[in-house]
Simulated scan of single mutants.
Amino acid sequence: MDFSNWLNLGLLLITAVGVWVAIKQAREAHESRDSAAQHEAAALESAKQAASAAEDSAREHRRAADALERQNELVEGAQTPADWSMRLQQPHRWQFTNTSKVSALHTRVEVLSDASVQMEGDSPRTIAPGQSFFVQFGGSAADPSNADIAIVWETSADELKREYLTL
């Protein structure tokens, strides 16, 4: 064998190794592409699941917010404004005004603490909406600093009502 044959054989071997390397790289590229496609599909599925979970969470938050709003509406509806406003008219003299829309029948004051509280005028009596009555409390050294009272009255529907106040 002469030199040209050895040279051709060497070139053939180098070419065969190059072809083998190219084929191996092509297979690895195909495997990487397939793996990337699988990862892309998995990522897309995870993104879809995350979006679905976010939508579910948003729906639950809306439901919770709606329920809380309904509860607030119920609480606001249950809270009735006070039927009496109270104001210190003079030292030891308190004014109570009927702030409701109906007359308070048989109105009287009940003292709930150990204090001397007196309703001025006739007791019990009818107090029309917007009208007032007066209560005397304090003035002597033996009186406590405050007194707990209840204003008791009836409505025209014979409903007994009470409002608790502290003088």
Rank of each mutant, 00 (worst) to 15 (best):
A42N: 14
V102S: 13
H92W: 12
S52Y: 07
H61G: 01
A26C: 07
L167G: 04
F96S: 02
S132T: 04
M86L: 08
S140T: 06
V17E: 03
F96H: 04
A37L: 12
A54K: 12
F3E: 12
A36M: 12
R62A: 10
E60R: 06
F133I: 01
L7F: 13
A128W: 05
V75M: 08
Q49H: 15
T166Q: 12
I23A: 02
Q49F: 11
L12H: 11
H92Y: 15
F133W: 05
E60F: 10
F137E: 03
S46G: 03
L74E: 03
T166I: 10
A22I: 10
R33H: 09
P91T: 05
E31M: 04
T15R: 10
D56I: 12
L112A: 09
T166P: 03
A65M: 05
H30Q: 15
G10D: 13
A157K: 14
Q131G: 01
V135A: 04
R62P: 00
T99M: 15
L88G: 01
V19I: 03
Q71E: 09
T126D: 15
S85T: 14
E159K: 10
E163C: 06
Q38Y: 10
A16V: 13
A128V: 11
S52V: 06
E159I: 14
A104M: 12
A53S: 13
E55S: 10
E163H: 07
W153S: 00
E45A: 15
Q71I: 06
F137I: 01
H39N: 11
N72C: 04
E154A: 06
P124M: 11
V75P: 03
D122T: 10
A78H: 08
D143S: 15
W84D: 00
L74V: 06
I127N: 00
E163M: 05
E28L: 04
H106F: 15
S57Q: 02
R108K: 10
L12V: 08
S156L: 09
R27N: 12
L74C: 02
N8L: 12
E31C: 01
K161V: 09
L165D: 00
S140L: 09
K48W: 05
R108D: 02
E55I: 09
S35G: 10
D148Y: 04
Q25E: 15
T15G: 07
A147M: 02
A141G: 01
H39P: 01
Q136S: 15
K101L: 11
P144V: 01
A115I: 09
R33I: 08
E163Q: 11
A16M: 12
D148N: 12
A54L: 12
G139E: 04
P144G: 02
Q89T: 01
A82R: 06
L112N: 08
S113R: 11
Q118V: 13
F3P: 01
A29W: 03
A50Y: 14
L7G: 13
W94Q: 07
S123F: 08
D83E: 06
E69Y: 07
P129W: 04
K48T: 02
Q136K: 11
S123Y: 09
F3C: 05
V109W: 05
S4K: 13
F96Q: 03
A41W: 06
L74F: 03
V19T: 09
H30S: 14
L11A: 13
Q79D: 05
L44E: 14
I127S: 01
T107Y: 05
V152P: 00
L12K: 13
G138S: 07
